[in-house]
Amino acid sequence: MATTEIRITGFGGQGVILLGYIIGKAASIFSDQHATLTQSFGPEARGSACSAQVLVSDSRVLYPYVTAPQLMLAMSHDGYATHKDSMIEECTVVYEEDLVKPFDHGPKAKTYGIPATRFAEELGHKIVLNIVMLGFFGAVTGLIPHDALRQAVETSVPGGTEELNLKAFDKGFEYGMELKEKGEVKV
């Protein structure tokens, strides 16, 4: 039983929960995996810091919360700083490089940064920042097949925004693949 624990953090309004939802949906509906999403509720999900947890596994997820996450998607520095110490040593951090500055990771950690907000703005709307992050995450981690993620994007975003969101996904994914080929890992 291999389970990957993922923590997603950001500000309210960045689409943190949707990002978690798409990862979970891609894994459990469009790929042959199990995925459980839980999220922080209450005032914090409607404004300031916001976080979601996704557990992706090859068998049924029994314990629904992260305990020692292997993976983090960070879109705010505060969220990153709050949760970084709960990560395992060999963790992977996928982060928005203009918003998050990773620090104090051991040699076994991998960190992948992307200027996702700038890419999203170039594509026409800052709102797709989370989907750029998703594509990037898909490429650098390889945890969930590309096609499953893409299908999950297509079926989860608001009607009429599919094209923009898929472009955002592709942009993030391409950037991730390039980064991986270059072997560029910033710490």
């Binding site: 979970g24 459990s28 459980t36 999403l37 999220q39 509720f41 629904p64």
Partner: peptide, 10 residues
Amino acid sequence: DECVGHMTEK
């Protein structure tokens, strides 16, 4: 309960 109510799965 809140955990099951707010937990998203297939």
